[in-house]
Design a protein around this nucleic acid. Structure first.
Lengths: 144, 144
DNA sequence: CATGGTTGTTTAAGGCACTGAAGTAAATGG
DNA sequence: CCATTTACTTCAGTGCCTTAAACAACCATG
C-alpha cells in the first residue's frame, strides 16, 4: 500500500475541483448581482425563473428549490406583493395553490436571463470548437 | 437590422450557460451538504476554508467573502464558540484582530475538503485528456 | 505634540432565507 | 362516515446579510 488514503485524488483532479469552485463562485455571485439589479434576492430570482417556464403548485416549487414548502410561502408572498407572481386556485383540487408569473413577472424574468451577461462573458474568449467541447464535458458531468 | 436585440447569444452559448447553471447548482448544493455533515453552514465552511490556508484579519476576510466586515464578526463568533477559530491580536496594529483556525478547525477543514467527493464524482467519468482540456477551458474562463 | 480625519472592529436594528412543529382545510380510503 | 393523508400556512427560532452608529487605535498635518 503506497498510499494509506482511501481515494487520494491526483493533482489534476484537485486542480479541476479548485477551478470549478472558482467558476461556481463567480457565476453564483454574478447571478446574485443580476437579481439585485431587479431588486430581487437570489431565491426570488430562482423561483421567478422557474415560474417563467410554467405555473407550479407550491409543493412542486419546494421540490424544485430543494427546500421546505413553508419557506416557499414567504418567497411567493414577497413576489406577490410586487405583483410579479400570483396565486391561482387549482380547479381540480381546492387545497392546491398554483403560483404563476404575471405579465410583469415574465418581463422581469426575461430581463434577468438577458442580464446574465456576466455568465456569458467568460465564454466570449472561447472559439466555437472550444465551446462545443466545453458543452460536451459539462453534459457528461451533469449526467454522471 | 435583422435582430432588434443588442447581443443576441447563439444557441450554443445559451446551452453552455444553461449547463454551467446546472453544474453550479449541483456543486453548490453538494458543498452545503458537505458542510452540513460537520454541522457547519455554507458561510462558516467557506470562512473556515479560507483560514485553513492562513490566518487573516477580519477586514481581509470580508474582502475575500465579498461581504461587510460586520457580517464576518457574527460568523467568526459562531466558529469561535465551537473552538474552530480564534481571534489573535495583531502586534503591529492594536485595532486589528487576526482570525486563525485552531487545530480542531484545521482538522475540520481537511475533512471538509476530502468530503467534497460529490464535486469529484462527476469528474471520475472523464479521461485524463478530457480532464486536461476541461482544466484549460476553466482556466481561461476564470481569467477572462 | 495636539487634533482631526481615517481605519478596523463591534453592536444594534431590521430584512430575507430557511427549518421544524403545529394548525387548517380539503381530498381520500376503508 | 370517519380516520388518515395531503397542501398550504403560521409561528418561533436560527443564521446570513446590510446599514448606521459607536469605539478605539492609527496617522498626518499644523
Amino acid at each position: 500500500m503506497p498510499t494509506p488514503q482511501k481515494t487520494r485524488p491526483d493533482a489534476l483532479t484537485m486542480e479541476v475541483v479548485e477551478l470549478i469552485g472558482d467558476v461556481v463562485a463567480r457565476f453564483y455571485s454574478d447571478y446574485e448581482d443580476a437579481a439585485a439589479e431587479h431588486a430581487l434576492t437570489g431565491a426570488q430570482a430562482r423561483l421567478l425563473s422557474l415560474l417563467s417556464l410554467e405555473p407550479l403548485p407550491m409543493r412542486k416549487l419546494a421540490q424544485k428549490l430543494k427546500c421546505e414548502p413553508s419557506n416557499v410561502t414567504g418567497i411567493v408572498d414577497r413576489l406577490e406583493a410586487r405583483a410579479l407572481v400570483e396565486r391561482r386556485p387549482d380547479p381540480a383540487d381546492r387545497r392546491v395553490k398554483v403560483a404563476a408569473a404575471t405579465e410583469a413577472g415574465l418581463q422581469v424574468a426575461r430581463e434577468l436571463r438577458e442580464g446574465l451577461r456576466f455568465a456569458r462573458e467568460p465564454l466570449a474568449g472561447l472559439s466555437q470548437g472550444e465551446r462545443e467541447s466545453l458543452r460536451d464535458l459539462l453534459r457528461r458531468m451533469r449526467d454522471a
